[in-house]
Design a protein around this nucleic acid. Sequence first.
DNA 1: CGTGCCTTTGACAAGTATCAACCCAAGTGG
DNA 2: CCACTTGGGTTGATACTTGTCAAAGGCACG
Lengths: 246, 246
Amino acid sequence: MSDRSEVSVAAPDGVVTAVKGGPSSRCHSCGVRHVTICGVVDDTVLKAVESISRTIGVEQGETLFVEGDPVTAVYNITRGIVRLSKMLPDGRRQITGFLFPGDFVGLGARMAYGYTAEAMTAACLCRFEKPRLDKLMREHREIEDQLLALMEKEVDLAQERMLLLGRKTAAEKVASFLMSLSERFDGAETFPVAMTRADIADYLGLTLETVSRTLSAFQRDGLISLERAHMIRLLDRTRLEDMTGT
Amino acid sequence: MSDRSEVSVAAPDGVVTAVKGGPSSRCHSCGVRHVTICGVVDDTVLKAVESISRTIGVEQGETLFVEGDPVTAVYNITRGIVRLSKMLPDGRRQITGFLFPGDFVGLGARMAYGYTAEAMTAACLCRFEKPRLDKLMREHREIEDQLLALMEKEVDLAQERMLLLGRKTAAEKVASFLMSLSERFDGAETFPVAMTRADIADYLGLTLETVSRTLSAFQRDGLISLERAHMIRLLDRTRLEDMTGT
DNA sequence: CGTGCCTTTGACAAGTATCAACCCAAGTGG
DNA sequence: CCACTTGGGTTGATACTTGTCAAAGGCACG
């Protein structure tokens, strides 16, 4: 555990995600040794991080916390997909992010969580109690820096999303979504879409019908191939890239 | 300067914004003593911050930096309003934020700025060279904590905005905008709207015509009174609040 | 082999965008 | 001092994208 280990994590859909560096621990529910904090840290820090983290398994659909809950913990995903969302009182929902293995859940929450986090698939998470993590951050500057960097990336992504939500057309939104998903799978040509059309719609600020129609249109135009509803193959990356509007 | 001073900052439109605590310095362009970093810090830190900040004045319309520029500095606004925006290649624009006195510009940018920052009004800014600020953050933990807290708030706001952009109707967007603007002016009943209809539209993901129509409709319904195009009076806060959808 | 959830597709409605005309106030220059 | 210009802002007519409602198909799971 002292070297910069490379650990492979089984994604829920069978695809394997490789993550480099960082501490890891054995998942109680699936037994796989998972990465818990990304980035390379020295041995002492690694041990410290491991000492305050506890790996937990959650079932599909399980809620980690709800918008407004007092902040008790931060999680790092080792397996599965987590959905972050905000709701309006009348039930309209905006999904603010899909988180994958390696991503943090709850970073940057101070008093209360600003969104709800749910496991979209069975998942394994490293749980860090907030007070212990705060203490660790104070003791190990490298960790604070890591988390700060992660938050900066998050802010950046959020702004990109605002541009998408506010100014892109339905087709551009869906194309952007497909391209970014593909990136998550290492630029693979064919990849699984773990979320339902309704989830995609709530992520892109559309209706599920519009998402479905747009995907069908992409298929008609030879941009993609819907192998199955949840398995997509990109046929013409270049043209799809052009359609993102970016 | 050793006590926790309260400093009043003249906003561009004549309204006075009070900000408590933090270091301050005299603005070269307007001569007013401005707050430069919010939050309370001790004497040593205060002096250190002051030593690396330089107050600058910018004219209306001036660009601080453009999306993609390498990050050289972070700014704190002491006077005026700054507009942050992202553009699509074809010219569509999304304004990601309007920043007021006390707000930071460029926090959380690592290598390149992710958005363009322009002064919407004549403005005064405290400029912190990035390397010197980073050094100071490393030396004074309190500062890093302050900035971290600010970033957390930013993430929260960004997510609230996603909900607005993705799921709210035009009327709800405009109502939300008015309520949050009113907050900025301490809940005042009548307050200036410094931005044009086009700016508001690009902020809310609408067209300027829709913004104009919605404001007119609000006036017809007795919710607001458009004293002038850029001066709004809230007539029925309760009903307006209900219209925000939140 | 039903039952239920998700997806697709169609017909239609509605909300916004687009295009265009006009207004108003503030400069600007003859 | 007044015509002219210019940069918003408002309003109307119309188009179009996207949402809504509804029905039917497919796939997984008990």
